[in-house]
């Protein structure tokens, strides 16, 4: 199953808007990067929000731990080295904002979907697997010198 372009376009727009407005950071698509998060990141953060309704699936943000701390610090107005327990909640809020903006944008073209609460996973040796009959695409971005991957997963109805 291919990813419908309307989903790709709206996820990319939503992600850029959230980072610009709520985090004060510009992100740029970076298709030259590997098309999925690298295995050499060490500690990896995955913040996801699922959606259901007219379409069902999941939006997930993948970063290294350092990048997650940079994002949390920028969002909360503190230095990244001083970010500690705030990071999971901050990354969950970023996922919530991106998924919420994505849903709002899609609702201008089709019946709205509902979004769930965020889930944040932090670890150094894990992989995410999903059921069959899903389309799964990673969108590589750069925030300065740091890599961010937005993942969109769409279940076949």
């Amino acid at each position: 199953m291919d990813m419908p372009p309307i989903l790709t376009e709206n996820l990319v727009s939503a992600a850029g808007e959230v980072f610009e407005m709520m985090i004060g950071q510009s992100i740029e698509p970076h298709p030259e990067q590997p098309h999925q998060p690298p295995s050499g990141w060490g500690t990896h953060v995955a913040a996801s929000v699922s959606f259901a309704g007219h379409r069902s699936g999941l939006v997930c943000i993948h970063t290294s731990l350092d990048t997650a701390n940079t994002i949390a610090g920028a969002m909360l107005g503190i230095e990244p080295e001083h970010v500690n327990g705030e990071m999971p909640d901050a990354m969950g809020e970023v996922a919530n904002l991106v998924a919420g903006s994505f849903r709002t944008r899609l609702a201008q073209h089709e019946p709205a979907s509902a979004i769930a609460i965020p889930t944040v996973t932090v670890g150094s040796d894990f992989a995410t697997k999903y059921a069959a009959d899903t389309a799964r695409v990673f969108y590589p971005f750069r925030m300065g010198e740091q890599s961010i991957y937005f993942e969109l997963l769409l279940m076949q109805r």
């Binding site: 969002m75 705030e86 909640d89 969950g92 809020e93």
Partner: peptide, 11 residues
């Protein structure tokens, strides 16, 4: 309910 969002709004 999100302490992060409260902090963003307060900032």
């Amino acid at each position: 309910d999100s302490s992060t969002m409260r902090r963003i709004i307060i900032n």
